[in-house]
Amino acid sequence: MRRTIGAVGFVALLSGIVALVGLGFTNQTYHSSIGTLRATTSAATTACGKPMVAQQLSFATYADSSGTNSAGQLVHPGGNPNWPSYGPSNIFSVKAHACVTMTITQFDSGGALNNPYFDSIQGTVGDVATMVSNQPSVSGCPSGQSFTYKGTYHQISPCDVGHTFTMRALPGVDPGFFLSVPLPLAGNGNNECDLDSCPKVTVTFSFISGPKGTYAWNCEFPCGLNVGNFGAVMSAYGYMSGYLHVV
């Protein structure tokens, strides 16, 4: 009897240690000072050319993940000055089967993609986005092609990319869903710069959200270190990666 109680107590004690370790590993913080960034719903009843709920979501990419943005929010709590980051959150939430309009302000520099496949837009309404850029056109590649860095675009030069916003559903949620938008580079940006003269590109696009579930987004521009420049920030969860919850 004494040993039975002892065994139960012993198992409870060790399980408690396991549970504590679990708490230590939990992904509770979202790597965000503001928690989940929820889309706002506008009054419009027609969006994306159809009668449906219209939602808006704005966020940005910053060159310095340890800094703050113009609203004074931390870009990425515990960030690294040499690492860029999406911010101020990497977890987004939108309504299901809605027309979601995303506005991403790009404050970061860039270069060439590993795979030119990601130089064109897929999965948005009309496969296009609109950019407002105060940047001069950058000489492009492949040679012989020219790209205009203003207004509506489908494709940019694979050598002039700052980041990409690339998203697919978690396995089994919405298998056909695929969204990828290249964001043109913007020179060496300043996180807090709101002036018109600051190098920045604002990209706006709309897509129709799928069924309820979780979608994973990441950046396909090699802005990290080591092999393929996909180490460091690209492989550290929460900087160039995150989730979109469709609710």
Binding site: T26, N27, V173, G213, G238, S241
Partner: peptide, 8 residues
Amino acid sequence: PHSSFLSP
């Protein structure tokens, strides 16, 4: 299937 107990 889509738990977020741990980050990837």
